[in-house]
Amino acid sequence: MGMSRKLTVVVVEQNRDRAIAIVDALKDSGEVDVFVIGAVSGLARKIATHSPDIVLIDIDNPSRDMLEELTIASGPMERPVAMFVSGAAGGLAKAAVEAGVSAYVVDGLQAERIKPVIDIAIARFHVLRQVRTELAETRRALEERKVIDRAKGLLMKAKGIQEDEAYAMLRKTAMNQNRRVADVAEALVTASGLLS
């Protein structure tokens, strides 16, 4: 007990790979017991059974509001949990929000015990967020490429022109209308779908 007791951390994360990445990073610090909760049904109750010191959840997780119930201690045996924002640690909380992780910390826990865990979580969520953004960007770029290719095909067929001419036409229209090439291509594909 006392200062030597390991901290119990609950990570709420449905994606298995992301959960493993976070757990591994936290375990490397050697200071914590980590539990992962994947399913969202009965979330607050499941968290309470672990009696955690810290709960970590992705800021974009819609189930996060279920955790806000933990901030109101409804019974004498329950430990109120506060979102980690107050006092000197305020900068840390801002960094956490920016990294995309929200941390709920049991009331009264010393800042120096929390900081290493939150620091690791912030670093890990930063990496995960980058990966996710890159993935989304790649997917979007691929989708746009497909639409532009279809629009080029439509123009080539309708006007009997070459691929580079078709692309030049899309670009010129986009420039004139102050729109993105992908948006012009999408409008063309939609319109041609309606007309065919």
């Binding site: 800021i59 189930s63 996060r64 509001d65 955790l67 929000v97």
Partner: peptide
Amino acid sequence: APSWSSLRD
């Protein structure tokens, strides 16, 4: 926003 708590933050 994905949730009310995130919106508040």
